[in-house]
Design a protein around this nucleic acid. Structure first.
Lengths: 126, 126
DNA sequence: CACGTATATGCCTATCGTAGTATATACAGA
DNA sequence: TCTGTATATACTACGATAGGCATATACGTG
């Protein structure tokens, strides 16, 4: 269970991650919402914790699990090398995302948006 | 081998995909560059092809494999739900990416760059 | 301290996926 | 058509992992 990719290959783990994306949850809450046996939940959480996807805080005898960003960034960075292949196909996806995330006019001086390599785009690209 | 995540969980397959990201390759080229036995390459390519990650074109007795975008988009869309968790941590990553990819001044009207949800960024965000 | 709740772990088994090896198929050229 | 090259597939064995079940540990409360 070395790479982040093997971690997210398991459907139940992805379900847990998606659930935690909404907010932190205790083991029992995960168990109930996902209709999963408790040992299964605990074992998957163990894997996720070891891989750095989640972290737990103690609340009496409960453990509240919440997401950690680093492993997702790792997936993101791997994915980045393929971005230029979507350029043609990406517009549809972006229209979708733009409907979720309000457009930012400029102001991207604070943080330049995350974009694929595009050596054209303006004769500037080397 | 149902999901795209299981497909990319295999390190050799990720290597093949990364290689194909530079340009299309024949089976023999992949075999030589990755130092992988030919049946292994063919079998992984079979899996990748069935999953829609790659497609082959015939060139005499060679088969040239190239990437297809759809499955990557699927990973991307799954990843999207976690984007807001990086917001705080993303700046470091972006400074890194900005060192690789030259900043684009504006001109992002052609295609709005792909960005995470960030409801702040300027009082504008909703 | 006994009991109930919450979570983690250990053991066993079944399943699945990969590598390895051999072999089959397809094509090109002499 | 024979030969060499390129790629795909079949078969086997092995290793890893997830699930099920039982049990252990931890904590809180009466």
């Amino acid at each position: 269970m070395e790479s982040v990719f093997e971690i997210i290959a398991e459907p139940n783990r992805r379900a847990i991650l998606s659930l935690l994306a909404s907010s932190q949850q205790s083991v029992g809450e995960i168990e109930r919402r996902l209709r999963m046996p408790q040992p299964t939940v605990s074992k998957h959480l163990r894997v996720l914790r070891d891989a750095g996807f989640v972290q737990s805080t103690v609340d009496a005898q409960r453990r509240l699990y919440h997401l950690k960003p680093e492993p997702f960034q790792e997936v993101e960075m791997w994915l980045a090398q393929f971005r230029r292949f979507w350029s043609a196909h990406l517009d549809a996806l972006e229209r979708h995302l733009d409907r979720i995330d309000q457009p930012i006019q400029k102001k991207n001086k604070t943080r330049a948006p995350h974009r694929p390599n595009r050596e054209r785009d303006k004769g500037e690209g080397k």
